Computed example of a mutant assay.
Amino acid sequence: MSAASPINQIAERVERLLVRHEEVQRTNALLQEQVDALTRERDALKSRLGAARTRLDALLDRLPPEPPPAEDSHAA
């Protein structure tokens, strides 16, 4: 029976490791889904930022040029 006991202990450890491995795989899949969702969100935000910059540049182009600064007659 002494030979079966170490084998049983090894078998139990292997079973626990398999369960743990499955848990880690599920956790990894969930984390990968989160990374994918955040990547899509980041890409959408970058796209919106680019569009906003384009609109802002167009608005700035429509502004009249700044007049040169007036000279102050009171300056010494």
Rank of each mutant, 00 (worst) to 15 (best):
Q32H: 05
R40P: 00
D43W: 00
T54N: 14
P65R: 05
I7K: 05
D43C: 02
E22N: 12
T54R: 15
S47K: 15
R62M: 12
D72T: 10
Q34I: 03
P6Y: 01
H74I: 07
R16F: 03
P6Q: 05
E41Q: 13
R40L: 12
V24D: 00
A11M: 09
D57W: 04
R26W: 03
E33L: 04
P64R: 13
R53P: 00
A51N: 15
A3I: 10
L59P: 02
A58D: 15
T54W: 01
S73M: 09
R53N: 11
V24F: 03
E23Q: 11
E71W: 03
R42Q: 13
S47V: 06
L45A: 09
D61E: 13
A29Y: 04
S5L: 07
R53E: 14
P69M: 00
S2I: 04
V24Y: 02
L45H: 11
P64V: 10
T27N: 02
I10R: 02
R40H: 11
S47A: 13
L45E: 11
P68F: 00
L45T: 10
Q32D: 10
H74A: 14
N28Q: 07
R62Y: 07
A11Y: 03
A44N: 09
E12K: 04
H74F: 14
K46G: 06
R53G: 04
R55T: 10
P64L: 14
N8V: 04
R40K: 15
Q25S: 05
T39P: 02
Q25A: 08
Q34K: 14
A52T: 11
N28K: 09
V35I: 09
L17Q: 11
A11N: 12
